[in-house]
């Protein structure tokens, strides 16, 4: 088992791969820019008009921008893995790191750590920047649930990136994964979520976003909701591992 774990050289190699592709690095930066930027702009526009103008749950309203940032997180996760399925790039990578488990774990670890770091910075900046425009309706970092939401939003973004990364390894195409995931979180989950009641709360994005709510209803609490999302991401990452291990390159 030890022989299949990532090593410093394989992690270093994956880091160079990510930062040398414009689209992938751009996706990572867009996580912060989209989430915090849209949050600040929306709060500046309507945040002070009346209490609850950005939503009934003031904590969830503080993370309005995450609906956009999560798409950037998917683009990053999918892009980091999809680069291997461009032409025969995977053959070059596997010739350099023949142990496929080590290769895959190095990539997933690099994606996860970068998304988590970016996510945590995003979570804090979004909260502070967004609330700066809320005037007398602003929340403080000390208010109930805010620390949980700051930390949870970073975890949420990282899990979204890992979900997309794992699915891309299964389906071997970033385009296919994004054209499934983006409509899913923007439309399907939203529409089904309103209609289907009970079961819909277990969808990855719905469950994960519970960590951003001040109060939760239904079976799942904020952390158990994030746990459900982590299971979805883990299933995708596991599926990707099986696909990378089994298939001819």
């Amino acid at each position: 088992m030890r022989s299949a774990l990532p090593t410093v050289p394989t992690l270093h190699s994956e880091w160079i791969k990510i930062r040398s592709l414009r689209g992938t690095l751009g996706g990572l930066i867009a996580v912060l820019v989209a989430t915090a930027g849209i949050q600040a702009l929306t709060a500046a526009a309507i945040g002070r008009s009346e209490d609850g103008s950005m939503g009934d749950d003031p904590l969830f309203a503080a993370y309005y921008g995450i609906s956009f940032g999560q798409i950037a997180a998917m683009v990053f996760g999918a892009g980091a893995v999809a680069g291997e399925f461009h032409n025969g790039a995977l053959r070059t990578s596997l010739a350099a790191v023949p142990n496929r488990t080590r290769f895959y774990l190095s990539k997933i670890a690099t994606v996860g750590v970068l998304a988590l770091l970016t996510g945590q910075v995003t979570g804090l900046v979004t909260f502070v920047a967004g609330q700066a425009f809320m005037g007398r309706y602003a929340l403080d970092l000390g208010d109930p649930g805010t620390y949980r939401a700051v930390v949870g939003s970073g975890l949420y973004l990282a899990l979204m990136a890992l979900l997309a990364a794992g699915l891309t390894a299964v389906l071997r195409s970033g385009t296919v994964v994004l054209s499934l995931l983006i409509p899913f979180v923007l439309l399907v989950s939203f529409v089904v979520g309103e209609a289907a009641g009970g079961a819909a709360q277990y969808l990855p994005d719905r469950a994960g976003q519970l960590v951003l709510h001040a109060r939760t209803q239904g079976d799942l609490g904020p952390w158990t909701g994030l746990g459900v999302m982590a299971l979805w991401a883990a299933a995708a990452v596991l599926g990707g591992w099986l696909a990378v291990r089994r298939r001819d390159a």
């Binding site: 592709l21 689209g23 680069g83 461009h86 032409n87 025969g88 790039a89 053959r91 070059t92 010739a95």
Partner: peptide, 9 residues
């Protein structure tokens, strides 16, 4: 292996 085994980006 073949000349296409590299990411064009």
């Amino acid at each position: 292996l073949d000349a296409q085994s590299a990411h064009g980006g």
